[in-house]
Simulated assay, not measured.
Amino acid sequence: MKGLYCRAGVSDAEPKFVIQETSLPDVLGSHVVRVQVKACGLSPLDLKLIGDVGIQKDLIPVGREVAGIALQVGDKVSFFQPEDEVVGILPLDSPCSGLCDVIDIDEHYLVQKPEKLSSVCVAGALRDGLRAYTALHTYARMAAGHTLLVMDGASSFGLMCIQLACYHGVKVLTTSHSPQKHTFLEQLRPSVAKVIPVYKGSSDLLPVVLEETGGLGVDIIIDSGVRLQEEQEESEETKLLPHKHDIISVLGVGGHWVTSHKDLQLDPPDCRLLYLKSASVTFLNDEVWTASSSQQGRYLHILKDIVEKMSTGVLRPQPEEAVPLYEATVAMETVQRHQKTKAVVQL
Rank of each mutant, 00 (worst) to 15 (best):
E83M: 11
Q180C: 05
G252V: 03
S156W: 02
Q112C: 12
P179M: 04
L300G: 00
E233C: 09
S292Q: 09
I247G: 02
A8I: 14
R227K: 11
H31F: 11
T134Y: 12
I306M: 04
V120C: 08
V53Q: 00
E236Q: 13
Q295F: 09
L303A: 05
S119R: 04
G169T: 12
V344I: 06
L185N: 12
T312Y: 12
A70V: 08
V33T: 07
P44T: 10
M1L: 08
S78M: 13
A140N: 02
Y5G: 01
E14I: 07
V77R: 08
E230Y: 06
S23H: 13
I60L: 10
R298S: 07
V66E: 06
L130Y: 10
Q265R: 15
E233Q: 13
V258I: 15
V288C: 01
L241D: 03
G252N: 09
S293F: 10
Q72S: 10
S293L: 12
L92C: 02
S191N: 15
V18A: 02
L71I: 11
V66S: 03
S202K: 14
E321M: 07
S155W: 06
A193G: 05
A193T: 11
L240A: 06
L303H: 07
V86C: 03
V62T: 14
E212I: 03
A279P: 03
T134D: 11
L28V: 11
